[in-house]
Amino acid sequence: MTQELVFLFIGYAVIWVLLFGYLVFITGRIRGVRDAVRDVRHELDAQRQETAE
């Protein structure tokens, strides 16, 4: 009984940790990339205005 439950918990713990870890990792990277893209875009817009003036 106890040994069965150990296997059960190992099995599900691995599944949960990997799935949620991946979700958090990917979402974090999306944020990083989007922020970087936004910064470049702002810089580009600012410069465009400068050259227009």
Binding site: Q3, E4, F7, G11, V14, L18, L19
Partner: peptide, 14 residues
């Protein structure tokens, strides 16, 4: 696929 292999392996061991 990794999860399938791991969970199957744990189950198989038991």
């Amino acid at each position: 696929t990794t999860l399938t292999l791991i969970s199957g392996s744990v189950w198989g061991r038991h």
